[in-house]
Design a protein around this nucleic acid. Structure first.
Lengths: 138, 138
DNA sequence: CGATAAGATTAGAACAAATCTAAACTATTG
DNA sequence: CAATAGTTTAGATTTGTTCTAATCTTATCG
């Protein structure tokens, strides 16, 4: 039972409780059609315009947030003033190159975070996020 | 050779290559006068107003950024749209309570991050940041 | 000291990311 | 295919931050 090329987007949206509208389908194809990727709202908007998909920036924001809430995307915050959305839902972490703003995944496999203190009373750990900040090699 | 109550702020600023102006001294006292703390620009501005320190928001931003560049503060990015500044320069990490926006330190002592992959060619690791995202316990 | 230059501060304008609004449109249901 | 619930939109709005250029302060040097 693996994904197939076209209908699956429609299924994915329905399973997430989202109506498969033109815009959502088109954006889902951009986001999930190839390999994993990271996008900002502005980037996705530019890309959609290039592909002649009629979609407003407001809808890009709505859609990204809906996809995030539905668990189709993960939000990554590494630099203040913009949000990244990551299609990779597997357990992984990020390199962030401060000079260029480039964001790259690395697999959690092999990475171990040990000795995380107990969560404060009344709370529990939702996620442990590791960001490896990079600078140009000197 | 330990810090003493008042002059040290002046020294700290001079050592950082910053002129010890009224505003910078006052802000340094707010920031470094007690224990470690996290502030946003708006918070610090409100606090300064409460203490009747005449300082504009622009200066708060200038000062926070200068202090950061001088290595007196560290910036922490956990939610998009606002920046936190942390007076704790020691090796440590953060709890971030998503529901309340509260940011808390925990010591790196005892925490081990193992198996971080090699940095991509041409780059080196500037810092490994661990953010433990919390939600209300269910 | 007192003049000068370099640097800092300021109010308000400008900017950028993201959200809101309410009107127009579209998918679903029966 | 009509009704309705949900979606999209352009543009206004909000929020956090930076910029501008005029004013003021600190450091320097005669």
């Amino acid at each position: 039972m693996k994904d197939r090329p076209f209908t699956p987007m429609l299924e994915r949206l329905r399973n997430a409780g989202l109506r498969p509208t033109r815009q959502r389908l088109a954006l889902a194809r951009l986001l999930f059609g190839g390999g994993n990727r990271h996008v900002t709202a502005e980037q996705l908007h530019a890309e959609a315009r290039r592909e002649e998909i009629p979609v407003s920036l407001a809808t890009i924001y709505n859609t990204l947030n809906q996809f995030r809430k539905a668990g189709l995307l993960r939000e990554v915050v590494v630099d203040s003033g913009r949000s990244w959305f990551d299609t990779n839902l597997e357990d992984h972490h990020h390199f962030f190159h401060e000079a260029t703003g480039a964001l790259t995944d690395f697999e959690a496999e092999g990475l171990a975070v040990e000795g995380v203190p107990r969560a404060p009373a009344g709370t529990e750990v939702a996620r442990v996020e590791v960001i490896v900040r990079l600078r140009d090699a000197g």
